[in-house]
Design a protein around this nucleic acid. Structure first.
Length: 496
RNA sequence: GGGACAUUAGCUCAGGCGGUAGAGCACUUGACUUUUAAUCAAGGUGUCCGGAGUUCGAGUCUCCGAUGUCUCACCA
């Protein structure tokens, strides 16, 4: 331990060494900035800039991080930045006195200061503060990235998000928008009378969904546990319990590959409404997107990478069979449930399939191969095949299809909804069928307590899951899921 | 998992055919009382991602590895 500290201290380059020496000198004089516990600031930079006329020439106090510094002999300018904005300081030796002014000259970019002074406008027309007093609140011992180019290295930006946030203003605005979206969603759900609930993250079984879970271990109970991959089964238990309109927003964890649209942990929102169905959920999806558009973006026509995405309701609705017919020319209605004909069509149209796949699975493969990428504007795809939809009610007229939809924006899945299956006998059979067709390296178990809940009785219910990062990507014009998460999953850096 | 590309000073980046490592910002010293990528003068700054190899000599060429970006595959 001591050795590590010693090494880092002796390896310091000149810049870092000088900053530590400056801090040491302050400590010697009994003026250690880290001893200061508070600074009473009356205004943020943004408040001063927004209310400049009424504050001009009145004394104000504010605080922030020094971002730029221009020393010109007996007067200097610098910019300080706080949570939302930055403002220029004008510092004169005849206002601070020689001692304080020479201290100020030693401040570094990155240091945090508290200031009192008077708002005024410079000769060049910039709203500024003429400083009356200034105090060093925090000494920065590291060097911030260059003022003009900022921090560009994506690796460093993700690993040191705190630096990214300081020097790249757009980053902060993405996360402010993210927070506003989360707030808007909750507002909207509350306005409809939904109750926000929380269910366990640690699960006993890796149930439901096709994703592989992260496994962990409980020492005292002496059992394996799994980080959740969905919220669904607990939320439906609450519907059984009589909480008729509920939603949860929480992290789920999927032990799979990573790319610009997948992070191992991500934020899932699920909502359930008793006495409602899939069509209610279509309405909810449209309402949620329009509410966010109105309250966060200010328009229902969202500019995403030069494309205009119109979230205005109603969205286009296509059955999966219609979508496949439109984008591949193959009509699955003309050979309903004929596995051999489906396989022949797959071969003819170069759709990769597994040997054991049947008509429904091949229909889904056609959809993913031909249709999905074309669904740029918000589009509902409904009537999913039953084999891949173990939690959705059957369609009454076509029992091989289900009352399930997903909706797509920019060619990406954004949400998944059902008229929830509440028949406990059918549910058990369908979960067993799914378990049998599964041949992974982990055991797929049936959640018997969930079946028991359905036996107690769940009302007809509509439910939906939304991947919130993908939605946030749309509203923040972001091309990678990592850009809308503060700390995306990263491999540890190699230590050589 | 496959492919392409990247990794050089704290940051952003140059480094032609293999010959002792470069710029700007930042930093230090000095000048400058309305500057704003301040300016002017002088100065210091390195595990060239790691390891091995070829060579008299490797930031540069070869191989192995690490991390990242993009992309394809897999995966709701």
């Amino acid at each position: 331990m001591d050795k590590i500290v010693e090494n880092t201290e002796t390896d310091l380059n000149e810049i870092l060494r000088i900053r530590r020496e400056k801090l040491e000198a302050l400590k010697q004089e009994g003026r250690n900035p880290f001893d200061i516990t508070r600074f009473d600031r009356e205004y943020t930079a943004k408040e001063i800039l927004d209310n400049f006329d009424s504050l001009q020439n009145k004394e104000v106090s504010l605080a922030g991080r020094i971002m730029a510094k221009r020393i010109m002999g007996k007067a200097s300018f610098c910019h300080i930045q706080d949570g939302l904005d930055r403002i220029q300081l004008y510092v004169r030796i005849d206002e601070l006195g020689e001692d304080t002014y020479s201290e100020f000259r030693k401040y570094d970019i990155g240091d945090i200061v508290g200031v009192t002074g008077f708002p005024f406008i410079t000769r060049m027309g910039e709203k500024s503060i003429r400083v009356k007093s200034i105090v060093l609140l925090t000494k920065s011992l590291q060097v911030l990235p260059e003022k003009f180019h900022g921090l560009k290295d994506m690796d460093l930006r993700y690993r040191q998000r705190y630096v990214d946030l300081i020097v790249n203003p757009d980053v902060k605005s993405v996360f402010i928008t993210r927070a506003n979206i989360m707030k808007a969603i909750r507002e909207f759900m509350h306005s409809l009378g939904y109750l926000e609930v929380e269910t366990p993250v640690l699960h006993n079984q890796a149930t439901n969904a096709n994703a592989r879970p992260f496994a962990t271990y409980h020492n005292t109970l002496n059992i394996d546990m799994y980080l959740r991959i969905e919220l669904e089964l607990h939320l439906k238990r609450l519907i059984v319990g009589g909480l008729d309109k509920i939603f949860e927003i929480g992290k789920v964890f999927r032990n799979e590959g990573m790319d610009t649209r997948h992070n191992p942990e991500f934020t899932l929102m699920e909502l359930y409404e008793a006495y409602a169905d899939m069509y209610t959920m279509m309405e909810r999806a449209e309402q949620i997107f329009c509410y966010i558009a109105d309250n966060v973006s200010g328009t229902r026509k969202i500019d995403y990478q030069g494309q205009i995405i119109n979230v205005e309701a109603p969205w286009r609705r296509l059955t999966m069979i219609e979508a496949v017919k439109e984008y591949s020319g193959v009509d699955f209605d003309s050979f309903t449930l004929d596995d051999a004909a489906a396989r022949a069509a797959a071969k003819k149209h170069n759709v990769r399939i597994e040997k054991h796949w049947n008509w429904g699975m091949i229909l889904n493969a056609f959809f993913e191969e031909y249709a999905e990428k074309n669904l740029i504007q918000p589009t509902f795809i409904y009537q999913y095949p039953i084999e891949i939809s173990p939690l959705a009610k059957r369609n009454k007229e076509k029992p091989h299809l289900t009352e399930r939809f997903e909706f797509f924006v920019l060619g990406n899945e954004m949400g998944n909804a059902f008229s929830e299956l509440n028949d406990p006998v059918d549910q058990r059979e369908r979960l067993i069928a799914q378990a049998k067709s599964k041949f992974g390296e982990y055991d797929f178990t049936i959640d018997d307590d969930f079946i028991n809940a359905l036996e107690v009785g769940m009302p007809p219910t509509g439910g939906m899951g939304l991947g919130l990062e993908r939605m946030i990507m749309l509203f923040t014009n972001s091309t990678s899921i990592r850009d809308v998460m503060f700390f995306p999953t990263m491999k540890p850096e190699s230590n050589g």
